[in-house]
Design a binder for these strands. Structure first.
Ligand SMILES: [Mn+2]
Ligand SMILES: [Mn+2]
Ligand SMILES: [Zn+2]
Ligand SMILES: [Zn+2]
Lengths: 143, 143
DNA sequence: ATTATACTTGCAACTCAGTTGATTTTGGGA
DNA sequence: TCCCAAAATCAACTGAGTTGCAAGTATAAT
């Protein structure tokens, strides 16, 4: 992830300038151990520099279109974002129904599920999203 | 689903009055062949009677808390709802990335994946949500 | 070096699904 | 019939995300 990815180089490959805000977004996502909401990313950037929320939303949208980050629709109306570099392959997520925290799980072999999950003949499946809901170990200890 | 479920009886079991709006929500979801957005449910009820959107949102929220319907966070900021009666077991969904239409897929055996999907030791997994994204057969024919 | 151009950021106003609190209506029981 | 809790309504609000446009900044052209 962050140690192994050269973000400036990655942006150049995508034909994007390595601006401070873009680099900050990638660095924050690279250091994160879980998917972050746009507001969290915004808050983290603002510990370093002044930035408008629209800029961050536009950068995240742009990165998502380019498949540089994945946008996760885990619940309700708030999206989560995570790095989609080569060192961060797609994986399932766990969300605690009590504290709403999101954990990244290990990638699992999905090939065997692929064909039976296409649905009606003619559908082309591009991506499988798996979300597990339950009670995380921390909340379990409390109750 | 709708033919086999007695909605008035179901509401009574939950200690809820069988009001026209509640029955309309259940009937509409029972007749639907895909998960519906709150706005779609609202529009369908309004072909029959006058109703306020808050009523529908509160009914859907209540039904979700009682596990009478499932709320799906398929994308962005709009939730989808589907009946969670005994004849409508949990199942994966397919969403077309072009037309955004949602299809319900057949339930698949998940027991095998259950344990490896719990994540860190101590987590308790209650539910697995699977969403497949891709291009539906209708959009595929067009392009 | 200066200008032109495209890219990037900022600002304000907006959208819209969903929520809140207060008020009014309804319907089954005393 | 009257009462009261449950249910529905209304207006106003929330907040994540979006839009249009102006202003700033880096890169390319002259
Ligand atoms: Mn993740
Ligand atoms: Mn479904
Ligand atoms: Zn938790
Ligand atoms: Zn389609």
């Amino acid at each position: 992830m962050s140690d192994r990815c050269n973000f400036s180089h990655w942006l150049a490959l995508e034909g994007l300038r390595a601006t401070p805000v873009r680099l900050a977004v990638l660095e924050i996502l690279g250091e994160a151990t879980r998917a972050l909401r746009a507001q969290e990313i915004l808050d983290l950037i603002r510990t370093r520099r002044r930035v408008n929320k629209v800029t961050v939303y536009r950068i995240l949208e742009d990165f998502t279109r380019r498949s540089m980050v994945r946008k996760l629709s885990l619940e309700g109306r708030v999206n989560h974002f995570e790095l989609a570099c080569e060192h961060h392959p797609p994986h399932p997520h766990f969300q605690c129904q009590t504290c709403r925290e999101v954990q990244c799980l290990e990638p699992v072999a999905l090939n065997r599920m692929w064909t039976e999950l296409q649905g009606p003949v003619g559908n082309r499946a591009d991506h499988i999203d798996i979300k597990v809901e339950g009670l995380c170990h921390k909340c379990r200890d409390i109750s």
